[in-house]
Design a protein around this nucleic acid. Sequence first.
DNA 1: AATAATTTTAAACGATTGTTTAAAATTAGG
DNA 2: CCTAATTTTAAACAATCGTTTAAAATTATT
Lengths: 203, 203
Amino acid sequence: MSKTDQSTEEKIKDAAKKIFLEKGFGSTTTRDIAECADTNIALVNYYFRSKERLFQEVFKESFGETFLPVARILNDDLPLEAKIYKFVDHMTELLKRDPLLPMFVLSEMRGEHSKVCDMMTAIHQQEVNRFQQQLEEEAAKGNIRKTDFSQVEISLMSMVIFPFISMNMLKMKKNLTTEEFYQLMDERKKAIPEMILTYLRHK
Amino acid sequence: MSKTDQSTEEKIKDAAKKIFLEKGFGSTTTRDIAECADTNIALVNYYFRSKERLFQEVFKESFGETFLPVARILNDDLPLEAKIYKFVDHMTELLKRDPLLPMFVLSEMRGEHSKVCDMMTAIHQQEVNRFQQQLEEEAAKGNIRKTDFSQVEISLMSMVIFPFISMNMLKMKKNLTTEEFYQLMDERKKAIPEMILTYLRHK
DNA sequence: AATAATTTTAAACGATTGTTTAAAATTAGG
DNA sequence: CCTAATTTTAAACAATCGTTTAAAATTATT
């Protein structure tokens, strides 16, 4: 096997990530994954003990190692305006690379006792929120309006992430190609911070 | 059978709606639905010809008869400010009643050639957009800033709908009960229009 | 009351699911 | 080169999937 080839284990995990992200856990079969990895189903259970364990590895990697690091930009030590621009920019670039990631993560969290909820609490150790702290400080200094931090955080997340969750709907409604959709998302790198910051600074 | 009892057909459709919205098409079994409707699996296929057809009825009802009418508020003949407040209020109330609806609709649209895409185009006949027209008129009059309509529409939709899609994540992260979550959503009835209108009116 | 139409039941169908087995092929180590 | 460990293969496992069948029970019609 040449050096450029992936190991069988890697091919299977990559195939699993692709298919799980596309169809979700319930609609994905072990045979789907094996075929996509160009192997047989026995090898899937040889390297990963079960479909369930393979899924958990994919989920942990997608959420913990891909999404969370970008989300943590809000905890960076940066001025408010620069931080918001950086967050929207990096998150948009991540989602352009991995547009199915948010739907994958959130759809697997349907049902309060979903199999990923326990994993979430494990990964999501209570982190101090530098963003909240920052909004409160700037409001105290009179630089921005006093706001409910949660509302601002939710709105910011919503405006960046939701378009990718509703990507197919959007593309249909507005008759967009994938390229045109990504261009629309790029324009949001300015539009979203502008809206948030205009809101924070006025009235 | 007493008059207050539902017909078997209604019980099955209600059960199907409940389970499909909770788990999606792929993770729902005909036996799930039959058990939830307190009947047997043969009756599911007796009244609805297949799981597929039952799903399509549920989807069409959820999207076409529940979600779309509220979304069409943006086409109402109302002043801009009143319209935005009305849209956010009605959509929030709808989603408090049916919090799983957006995730259900959007998760079934994964994959460009999903089985609901054809249905969408059928339902979603090109509608004139009074909201876009209105934003352009007000901007021409100098009442609000000139904006890309799509960006405003996407942001508005995102801020209202996304919190319900990420409901479980939000409840976990912020340690919210269902009641506290709904209270947060109620507060957004003011916060969202304020942000949009502040943005439109300034600079 | 007798008959026809409708609704419900229990059982089974073949197909597909996740998983396991045991032998074959390949690679690694002495 | 021989042996041991690892990887790959083909086949099968029981369980569950969506769906169908045919008879039983119920309701409606005359």
